[in-house]
Design a protein around this nucleic acid. Structure first.
Lengths: 232, 232
DNA sequence: GAGTGGTCTAGACCACGGA
DNA sequence: CCGTGGTCTAGACCACTCA
């Protein structure tokens, strides 16, 4: 169980604050030599640290000390930027796609649409301290939000929906599940295929109980912590 | 990217229902030969399937096709057994420890106790279809629940707290985070060190706003899906 | 262009599970 | 007791990052 020992030795160093968040670890070959083992075994120790959330990996760039997790409160209906700023983080959002088209199967199902409805789709990549942490797709009902894509949503998709269209969000429903990051999303997040991920699906209801927006977000698992206060 | 191809080939078989949940995969050596590769590469493909949640591993027993995820509703305050039964699952709960003692640091913090308070502690292992999926520790305020440990809690810890002591739970607060399964918990869950896990911390408040019970549950990540409906 | 991480090979030994 | 999964070794090649 050499890799567990190595894991613990590195973990101690991190927990005692010997290493700064965002700092790069030495190269795998160097570490392997330090611990007198092979790269394969060393990488096992690193994968363990990654699963624990203590370090993260940027594809082909190396291993880095993790930042604190972003606290994600299910009861607050905030866009990414204000959410992160409240926690003294440095967020960045990059819009990768904006289009209006016939709803695909997933959008139809999430929004509860009749066949051949049109929807707006917005894809965004979100970063914290320059690390891409989450990829999100919004599906926005065209019926409730006409001409949505003609403006830039500097202030956040959800805020715009509520302010410009005065659609009040009355309730939310969530599905949270774990996954592996793969394919395109994985690449955008600078992750290696198979990196642990968390998928948060969120539906926004208006006061008539219709789903007006749906959102599917893929997160690097160690970038967030979910919280909720529930009144019974 | 051989391991991704192998991953996809096996994933297809599973998704098309060629393989039953709970069924054991052939041995690693056999699979490696089938796909004309080495065990190391094959295991990478299997780890990917595990991260996706399609298969799980029972330590030293082999790899198995996953069961559906248990749906865990944050708004419902159910014990494990009724929760699982509602979803036509076969739950089992095994109590591993019951004791009353001075609260340790974690318990003191979770319950918001004054120093040197006494608490009841109950550790349980929960299984679905004979697979251990979750390990939970309850911290129960002795102030609110005297002599709690003298009876067996066949009907579930939370139910007993509410029924026998007529303490109404007014609200809950959750913290959900990802982790790696390690050490004792890992062993109890028949998992391999580093298997992805989910940690759900839940605090139960009475109508005076005091925390009366706290619970920390470690789950096999692919055994559950979290859901919540939130009114704003 | 040097060095890195991602991927892969072809073995090996051991402790454990299950028959 | 056999076969299995868990762990480890000592290499290799390639594509990519970064200086």
């Amino acid at each position: 169980m050499q890799y567990i020992k190595i894991n613990q030795m590195i973990a101690e160093q991190i927990e005692q604050g010997m290493l700064e968040p965002g700092q790069k670890l030495p190269s795998e070959r160097q570490l392997a030599e330090s611990f007198d083992t092979t790269r394969v075994t060393l990488r096992e120790a690193l994968s363990l640290l990654e699963a624990e959330g203590l370090i993260f990996r940027a594809d082909r760039r190396g291993w880095f000390i993790s930042y604190p997790r972003l606290s994600f409160d299910l009861k607050k209906c905030l866009d990414f930027i204000p959410l992160a700023q409240q926690q003294q983080r440095q967020p960045k959002v990059q819009t990768l796609l904006k289009k209006t088209s016939l709803a695909n199967k997933q959008a139809t199902q999430l929004l509860g649409l009749v066949p051949f409805s049109e929807v707006h789709q917005i894809d965004q990549l979100r970063s914290l301290e320059s690390r891409p942490v989450s990829f999100v797709t919004y599906w926005i009902s065209k019926k409730h939000f006409k001409d949505f894509l003609t403006t830039e949503e500097i202030s956040g998709v959800i805020r715009r929906c509520q302010e410009e269209y005065s659609v009040a969000i009355a309730s939310l429903s969530y599905a949270v599940t774990t996954s592996a990051l793969l394919g395109d999303i994985c690449q955008l997040l600078h992750a290696t295929p198979g990196t642990p991920g968390v998928v948060i699906t969120r539906r926004y209801y208006n006061q008539q109980g219709e789903v007006v927006i749906a959102e599917v977000a893929h997160w690097q698992h160690n970038a967030l912590q979910i919280e909720a206060d529930i009144e019974l």
